[in-house]
Amino acid sequence: MKVIKSKEFTTDRAWAALDIANLQGITVRLHWTDQPYKWHINDGEEIFAVMDGAVEMHYKENDIIHQVLLETGDIFHATIGTEHVAHPQGAARVLVIEKEGSI
């Protein structure tokens, strides 16, 4: 049993994470960040839920870059092969659900 107050979670570096659970090879992790990540493609699907703050998600479809502002409570689903990068707008806390070992 765990109770996690996501708004209280911080770390000493951007994108560091609190491991919450491993569901038969699917990880659930809470990240804190105030810096962009990097363009990447996961080797599986990814769920990205903003728990606190706002994140501008950039993603490519047919080599065209799109962006969407995700606010607290919003969810981004990156399908297999979706190249994307997250740009927090200040400090943000993000719940990420993805295949274990994914970048």
Rank of each mutant, 00 (worst) to 15 (best):
V96H: 05
M57L: 10
A17C: 15
K38L: 13
I97V: 03
A49K: 13
N42H: 13
D12V: 06
T11R: 03
V3P: 14
A91I: 02
T79Q: 15
D63W: 14
E45W: 09
L95W: 00
T82V: 07
E61P: 12
H31Y: 00
A17W: 12
H58F: 09
E45V: 09
H84I: 00
V50S: 00
D63S: 11
G101A: 01
T10S: 11
I4L: 10
G73W: 04
A49W: 07
I103E: 09
L70R: 02
A21W: 04
A92Q: 02
A14S: 09
I20H: 03
K60P: 12
G25C: 04
I26K: 11
T10A: 11
I20T: 03
L95N: 01
V3C: 14
I26S: 07
T27D: 08
I80Y: 15
V28K: 07
A17N: 15
M57D: 12
V28Q: 08
K5D: 12
G44D: 09
V28N: 08
T33N: 01
A14C: 12
H84D: 01
T11Q: 02
I65L: 09
F9A: 00
T11C: 06
V3Q: 14
I47S: 13
W39Q: 07
I97F: 00
Y37W: 12
Q24H: 15
H31L: 01
A14K: 10
F76R: 03
L23W: 11
G25L: 02
E71S: 10
T27M: 10
G101Y: 03
T11S: 07
S102C: 13
Q24L: 12
G90K: 06
G44L: 08
E83G: 07
F48W: 01
D34Q: 06
E71I: 04
I64R: 15
H84Y: 03
L70K: 06
K60Q: 14
W32H: 10
N62G: 12
H66R: 12
G90H: 02
A14P: 12
E83A: 06
H31M: 04
H84M: 00
L69N: 08
W32P: 05
